[in-house]
Design a protein around this nucleic acid. Structure first.
Ligand SMILES: [Mn+2]
Ligand SMILES: [Mn+2]
Ligand SMILES: [Mn+2]
Ligand SMILES: [Mn+2]
Lengths: 219, 219
DNA sequence: ATTTATTTTTAGACTTATCTAAATTATTTT
DNA sequence: AAAATAATTTAGATAAGTCTAAAAATAAAT
């Protein structure tokens, strides 16, 4: 099946929205994710339904079919492997790779991405800690422990970032927090759920908005 | 200036046609190169003329403006650097890289291609021996000595391929001729201009059609 | 259970890039 | 120089993807 970049972007958006919301994805949600008007989304999901890539009943939102899901995961795989390439080989920073990967993920080839994966020595995660699906589309999600839920006095290691937006990543750079950083929760403030955290560069105060967006593994 | 992939492909086609034909490029020539109808070409060149990328007078064909030329060379640069990447880093063969580079050359980024160039350690030529323009768009063409014009008894080294089409490259693979191969002209047949050539694997007969498409440097 | 507000869909229009068929201009041949 | 041929351009149509504005359906509020 030969899909346009636009169609691929819709599938990918539906995939990640479905993952985050765990039920049928609404037209408006997609339109916000993809930055188009709801009417355009309706047109496209009808087209995708026609091609059996999504399940669609009028006014009920969409979910991916098995084929749709498979294709979406393939694009995610390509996106994340290209991100690794850009960071590891071309010395980009983790806040710069996403936009370029948005373009590179649409390169069509039977062999390219597997060769790239081998060249990169089979990385398991992208620069933001997101898991890279394997050739067959299997993907190991991490266990969803957020920094915000780490108990006072305990230490943890940063394994991923939920919101990989540019400003958030730049902000973490400023705090010198990166994948692998070890954080110790010194205290929590019940008033606003902020926490005092010990890092390599000292103690810093982290708001709940931040700590809810950092995946960690308890030590 | 933000150009579509299609517009970029037209500029690149006009560039190489102008280089090969050294005067105004006709509508039909472009239509053959790009595999579209002449009427579509007319539409597009009018659009490109509107954007000051080509000089165009009705029925007189087109030539690139300074800006058009600059952009075309940038795309050629991207194309050839990606080809080097695919061959050197991902282990593709020289007959496989062109098609993929056709896609990769359209990736938009201010920094990507320069970083890629550095990663590849500033190659000067692509896998078919074509020179890679530098960042400023300077390009050193080779001196156009074809194997067909090498004198009997003399030796030469293969430095490029004029027709980099898939079947031709595969044919050269079969003869074990590649960039850097040393060839000695043993004899020439006046009847059909074929030549007997000594290679590493022995003496082979090469037709004029072949020898006219191999760039060499005399030793 | 109505009314109100929100979401979703449809209808019609626009842009880009393409095509076919017809008209126009340029080039060759006689 | 006129006629025939070839190349180029125009006119009108189509498909993909988007938009605005209006209509229809659903959800929320009274
Ligand atoms: Mn990304
Ligand atoms: Mn994308
Ligand atoms: Mn090429
Ligand atoms: Mn191209």
């Amino acid at each position: 099946m030969m899909l346009s970049q636009t169609e691929e972007n819709y599938l990918k958006a539906i995939y990640s929205l479905a993952y985050a919301n765990s039920n049928n994805v609404s037209t408006t949600l997609i339109s916000e994710a993809i930055k188009t008007k709801a009417s355009s989304v309706t047109d496209m999901i009808q087209k995708l339904a026609e091609k059996d890539l999504v399940h669609y009943k009028k006014y009920q939102g969409v979910s991916l079919t098995e084929i749709g899901q498979k294709i979406a995961v393939e694009i995610v795989r390509k996106h994340r492997l290209w991100e690794v390439f850009l960071l590891n080989k071309l010395d980009y920073n983790w806040d710069e790779v996403h936009e370029l990967a948005e373009q590179l993920e649409h390169i069509k080839s039977e062999t390219l991405i597997d060769k790239l994966e081998a060249f990169l020595e089979f990385p398991t995660h992208d620069p933001h800690g997101d898991p890279i699906p394997d050739k067959e589309g299997n993907i190991k999600h991490h266990n969803n422990t957020m920094l915000s839920s780490v108990e006072t006095g305990k230490s943890c290691v940063v394994i991923g970032i939920k919101d990989s937006s540019d400003p958030f990543l730049k902000f973490l750079d400023k705090l010198q927090i990166q994948l692998g950083s070890i954080l110790k929760v010194i205290s929590k403030e019940p008033f606003d759920n902020s926490m005092l955290v010990e890092t390599t560069i000292g103690s810093i105060s982290i708001s709940n908005q931040i700590s809810k967006n950092i995946f960690v593994k308890n030590l």
